[in-house]
Amino acid sequence: MKMKKLLGLSVLAILLITACKEDPEPGTINFNITHKVDGQTMELNNMIYMSPAGHPFDVKRLKYYLSNFSLHNTNGTTFDTEVIHYCEEGIDETKSFYIDRIPSGTYDKLSFVYGLDEDTNVDGGLENTLTNINMEWPIPGDQGYHYMKFEGTYDSLSTGVILNYNLHTGATQGNQNFVEITVDLPSDITIDKNTWEVDMVMDMMEWLQNPNVYDFAEFGQAIMMNQTAQEVLKANGVDVWSVEKVVQE
């Protein structure tokens, strides 16, 4: 699709920061990201899903940051990184990245931040690229960047009118709102200067449920300064991710 090509140009810079180092050093995990909705691979624009609050909805845009990846060794230590990864559905190049130079050992968990931590999420905290500029969070009094732009339309059953929703998360009014996520690996990864493939899945339906039902109609369409909505999404975001498969190359 042409759009992918057009957008691909604009995301090049951030990839240089994160995923596109020349060659990974030994001890590498390649991460591959898939987005799903209620267990089915997500399709932008063309699929209608049913929200837990009872609203048919589609997804038109999804962009976000992942950061602060740590690998948990079974001996109780962690391998911490400063990787920041920008991902955008529809831009294949952003849906994979790698971490290299991982110390030898056996790892059974992965943790990371959905969004950016308070040290990075400041004005100018990321490199001044077109992609990062488009993720800025310019609300007067706030700082930093959108953690997530999750956008589409929903059918408001009360009005019969198709409405837009913008689930934009980020820090507002002094609340950081990033989500700390830990996921179990389906089987241990033993690193010894070798390479593994890890398939990560984010199920977008989980943003709308567990523990809270997120109702598009309840919070309205503008939630960037709505801390209640941000907290609901933060709580729901804890279990949106899973790792489906690990394979040694």
């Binding site: 759009m3 057009l6 957008l7 604009s10 077109l130 500029i133 488009n134 800025e136 310019p138 609300i139 007067p140 913008n166 503008a222 960037m224 300064m225």
Partner: peptide, 26 residues
């Protein structure tokens, strides 16, 4: 006007944001 532009009151910034005042998208 700055506050209208840069909040969801006016919501201009999502397309015309950043120092270039465009997202370079369609």
């Amino acid at each position: 006007g700055f506050e209208i532009f840069n909040t969801e009151r006016g919501d201009c910034f999502h397309c015309h944001g950043g120092i270039l005042f465009t997202d370079n998208l369609f």
